[in-house]
Design a protein around this nucleic acid. Structure first.
Length: 102
DNA sequence: TGCTCCGATCGTCAAGGAGC
DNA sequence: GCTCCTTGACGATCGGAGCA
């Protein structure tokens, strides 16, 4: 199923040149000595680099989240065991107390 | 066997925070 | 203010399970 804008997902391969109308050159760009084509190439490179970094960051983020969830699950298991043990201990003490009281 | 549904995973966008 | 990082949200894709 495609996005409402057409047959291409909105986020995909959106040309960086869309930020500026065609033929418009940024007057105060740091590399003002570059031709418009060079500027476009630079923008493309920057975008690709950013996407690549974010891709990696997202992977790492998901890995950390998974690890965190696993830790929490382990903790739950440990606490459940502790709880079980304490309940049994309490039961045993109650039994002992009852028999002594008789 | 083709179809549908569902959960997992991925890439991307956008917002917000931190450091400079 | 700008840049970079982190992360929630979203849509796309894939693989497996269940069904007609």
């Amino acid at each position: 199923m495609a996005a409402a804008t057409g047959d291409m997902p909105t986020y995909q391969i959106r040309a960086p040149t869309t930020a500026l109308p065609q033929g418009v050159v940024m007057a105060t760009s740091p590399g003002s000595l570059h031709s418009p084509q060079q500027l476009a190439e630079e923008a493309t490179c920057k975008r690709e680099l950013r996407l690549m970094k974010n891709r990696e960051a997202a992977r790492e983020c998901r890995r950390k989240k998974k690890e965190y969830v696993k830790c929490l699950e382990n903790r739950v298991a440990v606490l459940e065991n502790q709880n079980k043990t304490l309940i049994e201990e309490l039961k045993a003490l109650k039994d002992l107390y009852c028999h002594k009281a008789e």
